[in-house]
């Protein structure tokens, strides 16, 4: 009975909200979405075609002809075959992967540990929380400069170390290939652990407390509660948090470039730094277009996958 009433009420609602002219809503919707559609088209369709076109030529801004005449410099896909053999590109890609494989898990584990500590209330929670979030709001280029100063051979990091070991420490962090990479990763972990902490904490407080209590009564210890209740409940959130960091970490540029400029040599040259250097120093834009397109195609596939995950995530009550 009540179900029937509800249906009738819904029908009435439908009738009431029906627009005066049948397509008013659709037309307004079209107009409202138009500016965004134009901006997306402006930044995707034409630039992609341009990129595709330039990527099969030797064109550079110094070649003296407009980009639309680049066909005169057609090089029959040489850029793509060059790319396959470009050791500097592959080692930059490998370095980007190393940075990602160190930074993202480190940020995740530290963030999760912090989130666990913040799961229930304690005095001072709000102020600690606000301060711990600060690094992710610092302009990345400025964060890069902070760590550039910290890692100077006469800087505070070495000062702290020398106090610990009791003798003068003068490690030249940023001029040693391995140490420079470590320094860059430390900066990234410092800046983005708060993001993991923030997202994971949001997920952690969504874990139902009664289930935790029930598990405690049944004799589950903290670790068992964590692995059997908390982790499964947080699965989607963890995937989202990791996906965000993987995507952003892949782009790593600002902090790193300010700290080391990709150096010493190419020791900290990640994919973005490599493309930047080829764009601004070597100026072979036809080749850059080829690299960029190759990356875009791979990432597009990832995007579709991530999108499906995101859609799933929204169904999780948090």
């Amino acid at each position: 009975m009540s179900a029937v009433t509800a249906t009738i009420a819904e029908d009435k609602m439908e009738a009431r909200t029906k627009p005066a002219t049948p397509n008013e809503g659709a037309r307004l919707g079209f107009r409202l979405t138009l500016p965004a559609q134009i901006l997306v088209l402006f930044i995707s369709a034409f630039p992609l075609l341009m990129q595709l076109y330039i990527s099969v030529t030797d064109w550079s801004p110094l070649s003296g002809i407009g980009w639309w005449n680049a066909w005169e410099m057609w090089n029959s896909f040489a850029n793509y075959t060059d790319l396959a053999a470009d050791t500097r590109f592959w080692s930059a890609l490998q370095r980007t992967a190393i940075v990602m494989l160190v930074c993202v898990p480190a940020e995740f584990l530290l963030g999760l540990a912090l989130a666990t500590l913040f799961a229930d209330d304690f005095p001072g929670k709000r102020i600690f929380y606000s301060i711990l979030l600060m690094p992710m709001m610092v302009v990345p280029a400025v964060a890069g400069y902070m760590f550039f100063m910290l890692f100077q051979s006469g800087g505070p990091v070495n000062d702290i170390l020398s106090r610990i070991v009791g003798g003068p420490v003068t490690i030249a962090w940023l001029s040693d290939p391995t140490l420079a990479l470590i320094a860059v990763m430390v900066a990234d972990i410092w800046q983005w652990t708060p993001l993991m902490f923030l997202i994971l904490l949001a997920g952690l407080v969504g874990v139902p407390e009664d289930q935790m209590k029930a598990a405690t009564l049944l004799g589950a210890n903290a670790w068992q509660r964590f692995t059997t209740i908390v982790l499964p409940k947080m699965k989607t959130i963890i995937i989202i948090a990791l996906a965000i960091r993987v995507i952003e970490n892949f782009k790593i540029f600002d902090t790193l470039y300010i700290m080391t400029g990709g150096g010493p040599g190419v020791a900290t040259e990640t994919i973005s730094v490599y493309i930047y250097k080829v764009t601004t120093q070597d100026l072979i834009w036809g080749y850059v277009a080829a690299i960029a397109l190759a990356i875009l195609i791979v990432l597009s596939i990832v995007a579709v996958y991530a999108m499906k995950r995101m859609a799933k995530g929204r169904e999780v009550p948090v």
């Binding site: 409202l32 979405t33 965004a36 330039i54 277009a289 875009l296 995007a303 995101m310």
Partner: peptide
């Protein structure tokens, strides 16, 4: 309206700026 926008905009965010800067 604009059912294509959610995915298109996620993709826009996904790309490293460096990879679209030439055009």
């Amino acid at each position: 309206s604009g059912q294509n926008l959610p995915l298109a905009l996620i993709q826009l965010r996904l790309f490293p700026p460096m990879a679209v800067m030439i055009p």
